[in-house]
Design a protein around this nucleic acid. Structure first.
Length: 521
RNA sequence: GCCGCCUUCGUCUAGUUUGGUCUAGGACGUCGGGUUCUCAUCCCGAAAAUCAUGGGUUCAAAUCCCGUAGGCGGCGCCA
């Protein structure tokens, strides 16, 4: 816990914070706010503080706090202080609350929610912004005491000074609000239950926050917080309101737009560095033409001046592109480690019975030297899996695609329609001939020579002698049926590399299965 | 309804501070082509913004000024 001192922050000392409420999984919007705060702190050698705003006990849940912390770490967004929890700082808020009440800057209000709602409806109907009408603002001390001792339901309201408030937003410039339109703000349910706008002001002061960098949805909270600061005699931090992240329909991004939580993206197989690069460019860019940036290079380039004012629509295709790029950058060992859990989850492979798998890290999945193919019971090594994934590394946009792309390696028999075996307009008979040719060619290859290079050399030779005009295009007559026989798929990696991994026996078995399919249906 | 903010290719954006080099640049996506049995990668090329709109200032405006429209956000005993 920080010391309870009242020292003003030093203007030169940059201290920023991210203040998520644990009422949901870490949202991509909060993650981006965290990123910008982190980048800003890092580029100014400042401090970045994590503060969990869990004053709403009903909606807060420790598992959300866990999710927030885990995913921030996963993204590589590290904080220097915290996590602080507002629920553990209630005595601090109570002290300031009492001060405001004592100074008559805040007061108890006994209005019922029903009355308030009626009032709101009425104000709306006459074209006014809904705001508290001040009914309890002038209660005598006796009335307050009576209400309190009777245990009447109550809240604490801040006497909002009816004045204009302006502030210089680092991104938007001068912004002005008229507080006389706002009505007295509820700052706490009672002495031990502070509410957001109040708790934020106290904490930002106590934690000596120099710059409040947050989403634009907080812009209209700012004048309220400024007035509270003035009432408490706190210095005013600098403000920067980030543009919102929008969905396709240009409204604030929410669940109905699809994936919004970082954990969802992680599970779908997006890499942290892709997400970071992507989020950084949502409402900001360094000005040049380079678009690939790692965390360290972002720190070098980041500045609040280059942050956009308008909201930014999240373009998932761009994230996919970036993710594919970063997948291709990773080492094949790392890709293998990351892909294995998806295969396990799809039920394609499993642990070897009796052997313990080493579980490492948070999310890297299982790492072992041997796995078992569920359908056949055969063992498969990490190295073989590595070879399989190597074929698909450049084809992957998301890691989660791996099981659908490579499932044929882990199946005993393949299911596909016989027409898929036909390249262009081949007849059944031609397909059969093609397969027989592959079969013959491959059965002549001794196991010692069963390598990708060799298979390619031999098969290509056979394809080109053909008997037909030997054009490169004719390779398809041999290669397409072969590839479909091995994979059962319209699109896949090439037949040579697949056959090399499958081995002679399985390769020939699949060709024979394909011949059966084309002849008997 | 009230208050506030915003407005350059479909999307993210460069350019606006210091008006001319902007017949508006890049990236994703789309389309076409090359490599290729397929897919992906990679390479080449194209279409795509009368700079929301109206007016003004100026020899000259995406860039400066005024108005208008539209969009979004907030208006909670949520954060």
């Amino acid at each position: 816990m920080p010391a309870n001192d009242f020292k003003f922050f030093k203007p030169g000392e940059v201290r920023v914070r991210i203040a998520p409420s644990p009422t949901g999984f870490l949202h991509i919007g909060s993650a981006r706010t965290a990123l910008f705060n982190f980048l800003f702190a890092q580029s100014h050698q400042g401090s970045f503080i994590l503060r969990i705003e869990d004053t709403d006990a009903e909606r807060s849940d420790p598992r959300f706090e866990k999710d927030i912390i885990e995913n921030l770490k996963w993204l590589g967004i590290e904080w220097n202080e915290g996590p602080y929890r507002q629920s553990q700082r209630l005595n601090i808020y109570a002290k300031y609350l009492e001060k405001l009440i004592q100074e008559n800057q805040a007061y108890y209000c006994f209005c019922s929610e029903k009355d308030l709602e009626a009032q709101r409806q009425y104000q709306l109907s006459i074209g006014e912004a809904p705001h508290y009408n001040g009914k309890c603002a002038q209660l005598s001390p006796e009335e307050v005491k009576k209400g309190l001792t009777e245990g009447k339901p109550t809240v604490i309201r801040f006497r909002m000074p009816p004045k204009k408030v302006d502030f210089e937003d680092l991104i938007r410039g001068k912004v002005e609000f008229d507080a006389s339109l706002m009505g007295d703000l509820v700052i706490a349910k009672n002495l031990s239950n502070p509410l957001y706008n109040f708790a934020v002001v106290v904490d930002d002061f106590e934690m000596k926050i120099s710059h409040v960098i947050r989403g634009e949805e907080h812009l209209s909270n700012t004048p309220k917080q400024i007035l509270l600061q003035e009432a408490l005699d706190f210095p005013r931090p600098l403000y920067a309101h980030l543009p919102l992240i929008l969905g396709q329909d240009r409204t604030k991004l929410s669940k109905r737009h699809g994936s919004v939580s970082v954990s969802q993206y992680k599970k779908e197989g997006y890499l942290a560095e892709a997400l970071i690069n992507f989020m950084a460019f949502l409402g900001w860019n360094p000005g040049g033409e380079r678009e690939i940036y790692s965390l360290p290079s972002l720190i070098k380039e980041f500045s609040l001046e280059r942050v956009q004012k308008a909201g930014a629509v999240l373009n998932i295709k761009r994230l996919d592109y970036l993710n594919g790029f970063y997948i291709r950058q990773r080492s094949i060992e790392k890709i293998t480690e990351l892909c294995i859990p998806y295969l396990i989850e799809a039920g394609l492979i499993g642990k070897v019975e009796g052997k313990d798998l080493k579980l490492f890290g948070d999310d890297s999945g299982f790492l072992a030297s041997q796995y078992i193919i569920r359908e056949t019971g055969e063992e498969i090594s990490f190295d073989t899996l590595k070879k399989i994934f190597a074929l698909y590394q450049e084809r992957l946009k998301k890691l989660s695609e791996i099981s659908e792309l490579t499932d044929f390696f882990f199946r005993d028999s393949l299911k596909y329609s016989k027409d898929l075996l036909k390249w262009e307009k081949m007849s059944d008979e031609e397909v059969k001939e093609s397969l027989e040719k592959s079969e013959k060619t491959l059965s002549d290859v001794v196991v010692e020579n069963w390598t990708r290079e060799n298979l390619e050399k031999i098969l290509l030779l056979r394809a080109e002698e053909a008997g037909l005009p030997a054009q490169a295009g004719d390779r398809g007559r041999l290669l397409w049926p072969l590839r479909v026989a091995l994979t059962g798929k319209e699109a896949s990696a090439g037949p040579f590399e697949i056959a090399a991994i499958l081995g002679k026996e399985k390769t020939l078995k699949r060709i024979s299965d394909a011949k059966f399919l084309i002849s008997n249906s």
